Simulated scan of single mutants.
Amino acid sequence: MSVMTRRALLGALATSPLWVNPVWAQSSNLKISHQFPGGSVAEGDFRDRLCRMFAAEVEKRTRGALKFSIYPGSSLMKTNAQFSAMRKGALDMSLVPLSYAGGEVPEVNIGLMPGLVTSYDQGMAWKNSEVGKELARILAEKGIVVVSWIWQAGGVASRSKPIIDPEDARGLKVRGGSREMDLILKEAGAAVVTLPSNEIYAGMQTGAMDAALTSSTSLISFRLEEVSKALTTGRAGAYWFMFEPLMMSKAVFDRLPKDQQAAIMAVGGDLETFARKAAQDDDAAVAAVYQRAGARVADLNPATLKKWQDIARNTAWKDYAARNANCAKLLSLAEKLL
């Protein structure tokens, strides 16, 4: 067969209704890793559920060209290794607290900046505002694509008394969750403990820490009521708001055809409504869980919230802005939404 004949045949096939694009014909299996307890689409930690819902819907929209394997409970790799692995293209996707990568990329610590986000409306406004666009740009430069923008309020589980006012933390060993949270805890007189949320239970059980700040969902999923005597919830307001997005390796994302990229981003965006409702439901549910376990439950009021925010302005915010020009710009843009 001559070259011209082969070209003519390929041209005819390409315009045939039976023609299947070879890119779509090849099925890819992508790995999604996270640190949270596993469950199902219908039950369990909403972050695991979101990953499973995402996987099912993207597979449906791509007609099976994209499939996913989900690895909960840090079963694929250690929690703090996920962000770096995505940057290198060694991990496809992860739902992970962004601030965990603050030692590698200091800009991402804005995702757990005490007192900077105090409501879901404010946090969810980031995506389409200047601060969200700038954060997405920086992450793209670092090799990360944000697929779903997810915010969670948090509270404090304690082995003894509720931590409400800053002076309540004095002399205690407390887990904050980020460098910036640690700065305000130190200013309040606490000794800080650094570890991922899936290790809090063991730390509190052994007495290596007295209290821990984490999301309402993690306060439930990791059964911290079993090792706690008190809880301060985020249901009436919080200075602890975590940006915990579903993310994808940009190297992996860029290798996919445009149709598959569009499906991933569309499904990721659609699931943000589910994530917000689930997070807010957990803010309310966590109080009942701890009350049933016999813990004393307390809430923050606006005056107390402002005390923590004032400490943050003079410590964590200043420290973050001084890290580099990107950090200063992100903080300035975020403050516009206060």
Rank of each mutant, 00 (worst) to 15 (best):
E226A: 11
L330T: 01
S27E: 14
L18E: 09
A251M: 11
M242P: 03
A293D: 04
T232P: 05
A251T: 14
L10V: 07
S178F: 04
A208H: 09
V297Q: 11
S218M: 10
A101C: 05
R159Q: 06
L112W: 00
D182I: 06
I264W: 02
A321W: 02
M209T: 07
A101I: 00
R52A: 14
N109L: 08
R52E: 08
F222N: 02
A14K: 14
A288W: 04
S33A: 15
P196K: 08
R52H: 09
Y320I: 10
A287N: 09
R6W: 03
D281P: 00
T194C: 14
T304Y: 06
Y320S: 08
K142S: 01
M4R: 10
A287D: 06
Y320N: 07
F46C: 12
A312M: 07
F243W: 13
R61A: 01
A288F: 08
S197L: 08
S216M: 03
M247L: 11
P245E: 11
D182C: 10
V3K: 09
V227R: 08
T79F: 04
A65S: 15
A42W: 09
N326S: 14
V146R: 03
E104Y: 02
A275Y: 04
M1P: 05
P72W: 11
F274H: 07
M4D: 11
Q261F: 01
S158Y: 07
R235N: 13
S129Q: 12
P196S: 12
D165I: 12
L13E: 05
T5N: 07
F243A: 13
A266F: 00
G102V: 00
E59C: 09
Q309M: 15
S2L: 05
H34V: 05
R255I: 06
S94A: 15
Y201K: 07
L333H: 03
W126E: 00
D270I: 03
K277T: 14
Q260C: 06
K142G: 00
D299P: 06
V131L: 03
A230W: 04
D182S: 15
A322R: 14
V174N: 13
T315A: 14
L256A: 11
G44R: 08
